[in-house]
Design a protein around this nucleic acid. Sequence first.
DNA 1: CTTGACCTTCCAGTCACTGGAAGGCCTAGC
DNA 2: GCTAGGCCTTCCAGTGACTGGAAGGTCAAG
Lengths: 129, 129
Amino acid sequence: MNIGDVAARTGLPTKTIRYYEDIGLITPLRGENGYRRFREADMHKLGFVGRARALGFSIEECRDLLALYEDEDRASADVRQIAIGHLEEIERKIAALSDMRDTLKGLVHACAGDHRPNCPILKELSDGA
Amino acid sequence: MNIGDVAARTGLPTKTIRYYEDIGLITPLRGENGYRRFREADMHKLGFVGRARALGFSIEECRDLLALYEDEDRASADVRQIAIGHLEEIERKIAALSDMRDTLKGLVHACAGDHRPNCPILKELSDGA
DNA sequence: CTTGACCTTCCAGTCACTGGAAGGCCTAGC
DNA sequence: GCTAGGCCTTCCAGTGACTGGAAGGTCAAG
């Protein structure tokens, strides 16, 4: 299969697929014309990485997860540990964003939003009071 | 004031302050020795940007907010609009992260996390079922 | 006069792509 | 056989917002 078909089937852009080859996540074969030739196993890996990325795992985490997937002697504890670490990272991000949201909401609420210059949002940014 | 003092007072790294000059957020004076010389107004701008960044505003949004701050004839509606746009962006991010968190939590919960290879996390990434 | 803490510029790297240019390949229709 | 256009290839550069590091100038204390 050529890269265009793989892109259509996995939903990943061709650019991204080439990038994943560059960084060694996949190693498709090459035809005589130099075109990449993808096997089912390549497709499967791409799907795996796509789903892991959609869950927010970093590329390096994806690499580790793939390695564990292919290791028949893995301990599920190792997989779980990666997931827990990522989960904690997500919780931290949500907490930080929630703080921003709350502050912003208060400021937006306090701002008249009319033609006059007076603005509590700018005041807060200016003072930090 | 030299950059080191400004860094200590604003809490911003010197690297970041130089970067903000590079991209035109501030324009400190220069002494005869070539050192940057920061006025109170520069400090104030840096504080402003630092707080805006802490609320998650992008550099370009910070630039716009600064411009509005310095425009005596601004309409607070313009400031409010930037804040609302940013607020919506934050809400979107929180929603996306919350989805990831929920899915991940379910998977982590379902995974035994022991020495055995069987793992619902890997299964989900593999199947996408 | 030296030491060490400051300051300067410039270049490269981060992360995960994304865009674009320049050129080769392949298939369909004439 | 020829052309059109739709694939494919590589390589280089840019994104955002810094961050690290090297090479070198400046300044104050001892």
